[in-house]
Nucleic acid binder design. Structure first.
Lengths: 350, 350
DNA sequence: CGAGGCTATTGACTCGAGTAGATAAACGTT
DNA sequence: AACGTTTATCTACTCGAGTCAATAGCCTCG
């Protein structure tokens, strides 16, 4: 039972205390802490380091931020951290930011533009060094532009470049086309689309990908259901598809979350998957691997995208020209499409 | 096309600029901004407010934090934000913190004590006003204690009070007992336990609840499988239960995430749920509502717990004595237990 | 009409750390 | 021994906002 006798410093230890203890000036302490712009004699540095350790000194980030004009914090604005896709994204971003010594300030906007504004203002006044802004679908870019004018910002989840703003996204169109092609390869000719209903008037790229694959195979457009990007939304949309005039034999679904709801609607209708209706979805979240049946899905490379997003907002050297990075997706074959392989050893994203 | 001609201030606007513009001293600006300790003549205040609006002034949070010694930020350390349970928790905490004007600094520890330490130190040097620390299971409280000595900290997910630390949790034992009693009510006599394997040596309260219900009905202990708190863990644990000497007719599972994996193991074994094996799980996450079949689960009141956690760390007036709040749980009946009701209109947690 | 009491406003100092410019000490050269 | 160099250290100012003590202006009452 070794009782470590660190007396908890009632008054926080400052640089001054360290300086006094080590018998040097405060400047030297800074130089040691930052391996800072001037050298310090090795012996002196050792004394300072000792003092720091003994007193338990930690530099005050607020003071640092004030002087340097950088808080080493990034803001992350998400529609909803309880959406597993964004939750996984947030985690990757936190890791990527951490790798650069940056901390993450989290904010949920509920996909609501005015809440987004509120958070953006709040983050700006908290002096974050940059903001990563995710949304389900594009809202008015102009509005955004005004807001974030003087704060490095990167838009997440943008398949297509937004003029005047850095963005990071996955190639929704190509990924969706891959997925639909795969269904076509299984012999399906009536392939429905279960699409997210964004606030945007801009057509989602995933919808275009679906059309691309259909067109190139000379197939007619299947039925379309539009619903929110939630399990509930997928469920309702799925019900509409099932009860529709002619039921499709396959559905391409714009997110895993919706696909989970869709599966439920199909199960309830007594349909078996993939025999009666095949399903392929989009995102590649962990949840998709453990649904029944496991979802074949288009994986977005979250970790890579997260790293790219962080790099895009970081004051990396000098003014990086606005980048628009679009990442390729990967089709993860599981059971819901009709492929037989039943991967008991999960492939990725445990 | 009304072009709003706000020239984006290249140099950030400071209090001084506002003061000059409004023709007052900097002190007055502060008084106006904070409705601060002295009054300002209405006419003057109006001029200052105008200046603030016109120049687009936002007080520098770093300077404020330096002077006041409070950043109005809370740190949140989670094992893993991509775990839906913690993701939902994080969201509720962000909202609760936001209600008090606090921002949330997010950190993932991977359930790893040394990473926890690292984050805690980092958060401390960032001058957060408090830390909310969640873990799957208790690790050495002493270690924690040393770390957080001078930073208001509240432990999350603690069913039992930890001496010397504030904590917030749900009544795991009573909740688990409720769940198991419900299974007993369905006539089951061989009820297995699929339990999380924490790093802790302390018996999980959910295990005790399971025992309580079994004992009070005079039933023997069913088989126990221990596995990590993941879908994968639940899957492996489920396989072990299915292949075990005698297969239980019901399983109480210590988390929804594991239950999802368990369902998969049961499906793969060709068992139907709840006919062959009934399942009740714990947490009440959104995911549990859309599994197939929908999970009967013990809901933890996340929003209430989040609010309590935030209140516990906030510098609320003066030194709140360390609180240990334990919240009651609620059994959400769905299909996996054997009840017939098939709620198409979800009850809560959409 | 001057003293006393208000109120509105201001100047100046502070928080903790970064760093330029001044200063001191040590060394090498001729 | 005198001088320039180099190296180590210190002094002092700065970042932006909060706030106390002092001050200026105004009103009221005796």
């Amino acid at each position: 039972m070794t009782e470590i006798a660190v007396q908890p410093p009632r008054t926080p230890v400052t640089r001054k205390d360290v300086a006094r203890y080590a018998g040097v000036s405060t400047a030297v302490v800074s130089y040691v802490v930052n391996s800072g712009p001037k050298n310090v004699a090795p012996a002196t540095a050792a004394r300072v380091l000792d003092a720091i350790r003994i007193l338990g000194y930690r530099p005050n980030a607020a003071a640092r931020a004030l002087k340097l004009g950088s808080t080493e914090m990034l803001g992350l604005v998400l529609p909803d951290n309880s959406n597993p896709f964004f939750a996984e994204f947030a985690r990757e971003i936190e890791i990527a930011a951490g790798n650069h010594g940056y901390a993450l300030l989290l904010a949920n906007s509920n996909g609501n533009v005015s809440e987004e504004h509120r958070h953006l203002r709040n983050l700006a006044s908290r002096q974050v060094d940059g903001v990563i802004l995710a949304s389900n679908s594009m809202n008015e870019p102009v509005t955004r532009n005004i807001l974030t004018s003087d704060l490095p910002t990167v838009l997440l989840n943008q398949a297509v470049p937004v003029p005047g703003m850095a963005s990071v996204g996955a190639d929704f169109r190509a990924g969706a086309a891959d997925a639909v092609r795969h269904l076509i390869g299984h012999g399906h000719t009536e392939i429905a689309l279960l699409m997210g209903a964004g606030t945007s008037t801009i057509t989602d790229e995933r919808e275009l990908g679906w059309l691309d694959a259909l067109a190139e195979a000379g197939l007619p457009e299947g039925p379309i259901a539009r619903a929110p990007f939630t399990r509930e939304g997928g469920y309702r949309g799925g019900q509409r598809l099932v009860r529709g005039a002619h039921r499709p034999t396959a559905v391409f679904c714009s997110s895993d979350l919706q696909a989970i709801g869709l599966l439920r609607a199909l199960h309830e209708a007594g349909l078996s998957i993939p025999e009666d209706v095949a399903v392929v979805s989009f995102d590649g979240s962990a949840e998709s691997m453990y649904s029944w049946p496991a979802l074949t899905t288009v994986r977005q490379p979250l970790a890579d995208m997260a790293a790219a997003a962080v790099n895009a907002v970081l004051p990396a050297g000098g003014k990086t020209p606005l980048t628009h990075e679009v990442f390729p997706t990967e089709l993860i074959i599981r059971r819901s499409c009709g492929c037989d392989s039943l991967p008991t050893t999960p492939q990725r994203n445990a």
